[in-house]
């Protein structure tokens, strides 16, 4: 097994650069998730690691080896594609054993390796079927089986769950995580779904427009987002952002509402800031600021409240149940230790 290191990696298609110098170090055995909105260059980065796209500038290492000029098949990596890319004319067993057959392994060895992988993935009864005769989840497993059978240094996944229905996606999430715990193979996993990233990753790389916004463990990103983009991207429902001004001992929202918060030393008086509060960090309290209820959505386990604070919409989530009526006024208070401050112009965390 081996780690993967990206150093100042760039990618241009013609004259447009889509990846602008990415540095990531993925340790041996780590589960690293590249997450970001569609079109931010995640797949491009993954395909450069795989060798399906060449690298315009910078350097990629797998283990100790710089692989910029190494042919994909020599990189000892396996990839699971979004559309699975199973060979439609081959049975499940043949799909999984194809790489070994190309390497000229004996039939007995191929059969044994395929069987082992099939058992891990619960595919044993389907080995003689064709991809068409399988459900989406089963095809997804075959695609993983094809990767496992090769016992590669690195697994690459490109949005492997996005073609599955919501329930299956959750189940497969757990399964992939379990598989990683069992095989401990270095994994780079691409997704646009921050929940997938949060639940599966050892390390998350948040990307935006071809740049890395932040790298860290899931809870690190949640607790200390480095900038407004990460703060808004990680967590669901998304963090509330309120333009505000530091005003003596409290924060004045631009809408005129004052919020009393213990001010951190770093914030000089009268400074413009963006106050970030996660919906789950707002509580009902008599000394809170006033908000007008707009919509209320009970999901059973929690209650989501959409409210208006002087012209601005904010979202709050409560674990306990509340009976609110639209138009009613409630008082909300941010939990003091959970407020985030961002610079209004740069978006960086203060």
């Amino acid at each position: 097994m081996a780690g993967v290191t990206l150093r100042q990696v760039r990618k241009s298609f013609g004259s447009t650069e889509v990846v602008h110098g990415v540095d990531v170090a993925i340790a041996d055995g780590e589960f690293c998730v590249l997450v970001g909105p569609s079109g931010c260059g995640k797949s491009t980065l993954l395909r450069m690691i795989a060798g399906l796209e060449n690298i315009s500038a910078g350097e990629i290492r797998i283990g100790d080896r710089i692989v910029n000029q190494v042919h994909p098949k020599e990189r000892d990596i396996a990839m699971v594609f979004q559309n699975y890319a199973l060979y439609p004319h081959m049975t499940v067993a043949a799909n999984m054993g194809f790489s070994l057959a190309l390497r000229g392994e004996t039939k007995a060895l191929i059969a044994a390796r395929v069987r082992t992988a099939a058992e891990i993935l619960g595919l044993a009864p389907y080995l003689e079927r064709y991809p068409r005769q399988l459900s989406g989840g089963q095809r997804q497993r075959v695609a993983m089986g094809r990767a496992i059978v090769r016992n590669p240094q690195v697994f690459l996944f490109d949005e492997p769950l996005s073609n599955l229905d919501a329930k299956l996606r959750v189940a497969m999430r757990t399964e992939i995580k379990e598989l990683h715990q069992r095989l401990k193979t270095t994994t780079v996993y691409v997704t646009h779904d921050q929940i997938e990233a949060m639940t599966m990753a050892d390390k998350i790389v948040v990307m935006h427009d071809g740049l890395v916004e932040q790298i860290g463990a899931p809870l690190e990103l949640y607790d200390r987002p480095a900038n407004r983009f990460v703060a808004g991207f990680i967590g669901s429902p998304a963090m509330n952002f309120l333009p505000a001004r530091v005003n003596g001992g409290c924060i004045s929202l631009s809408s005129g509402v004052d919020i009393s918060l213990p001010i951190k030393a770093k914030l000089e008086a009268n400074r413009e800031v963006i106050l970030g509060i996660r919906p789950e960090h707002l509580e009902i309290a008599a000394d809170g600021f006033a908000a007008e209820v707009v919509v209320i959505e009970p999901t059973g386990s929690e209650t989501q409240l959409f409210a208006r604070v002087g012209g601005q919409e904010i979202v709050a989530v409560f674990r306990e149940r509340h009976e609110f009526a639209p138009g009613q006024h409630v008082r909300l208070r941010p939990r003091a230790d959970c407020a985030h401050f961002f610079d209004p112009s740069s978006g960086q965390r203060i």
Partner: peptide, 14 residues
């Protein structure tokens, strides 16, 4: 024929 099949085959070492 989907291009991803050829990408998969490339990675499979064909």
């Amino acid at each position: 024929l989907p291009p991803s099949l050829y990408e998969a085959a490339t990675l499979d070492g064909a």
